[in-house]
Simulated assay, not measured.
Amino acid sequence: MSSSWDSNSPVRPLTSMHLYFAVMYAFMSLLCLYSLYESFSKGGDELVKMLIACGIFIPWTFAHYKTSDAVEKGKTWASTASYILATPLLFAFPIGTFFGVRMMSHASKLKQE
């Protein structure tokens, strides 16, 4: 029995990229949560900055994880979500741009299947 991991389809690289970014953002979320814990004693602007950072990284982690799961299961909305999540990566030159373009190209192949 073959699976999507055995073929030459864009499912495997797209799923891997989303999982990679989910792990990376989870690590950044943990750093933000630790900084948030540390900034409670300082208060002021530091606390607000850490709340904003946690408010960005935690949902972004969840979004990449759910999109990787949707790509693997073949959900119809997975390629659109991949486009949306890849768009901000285009501004993180040069590495983010590379991954953003690759993610978008695999999402377009996924849409064609």
Rank of each mutant, 00 (worst) to 15 (best):
W5M: 09
D6W: 02
S7E: 11
S7I: 01
N8M: 05
P10I: 00
V11I: 15
P13W: 05
P13I: 01
L14T: 03
T15L: 04
S16V: 13
F21N: 07
F21C: 03
A22N: 08
V23Q: 08
Y25V: 00
Y25M: 12
A26F: 14
M28C: 09
M28N: 05
L31E: 07
C32K: 00
C32W: 06
L33Q: 09
L33G: 13
L33R: 03
Y34H: 11
Y34S: 09
S35Y: 10
S35T: 06
S39L: 04
F40S: 07
S41G: 14
S41E: 13
G43T: 06
G43F: 08
E46Q: 13
V48H: 09
K49W: 08
I52F: 14
I52R: 09
A53Q: 11
G55C: 05
F57M: 13
T61G: 05
F62S: 02
F62R: 02
A63M: 15
Y65G: 02
Y65A: 08
Y65H: 02
K66L: 11
S68T: 00
S68M: 13
D69S: 11
V71H: 09
E72H: 14
G74R: 11
K75G: 02
T76N: 05
T76H: 01
W77I: 07
S82P: 08
Y83M: 10
L85R: 08
A86E: 05
T87E: 01
L89D: 01
L90G: 03
L90Y: 04
F91S: 14
A92W: 12
P94E: 06
I95G: 01
T97L: 14
T97M: 12
F98E: 02
F98R: 03
F99V: 00
F99Y: 15
V101P: 07
V101Y: 09
R102K: 15
M104G: 12
M104C: 08
S105E: 13
S105R: 15
H106Y: 15
A107W: 08
K109L: 06
L110F: 14
K111H: 12
K111S: 09
Q112G: 01
Q112L: 04
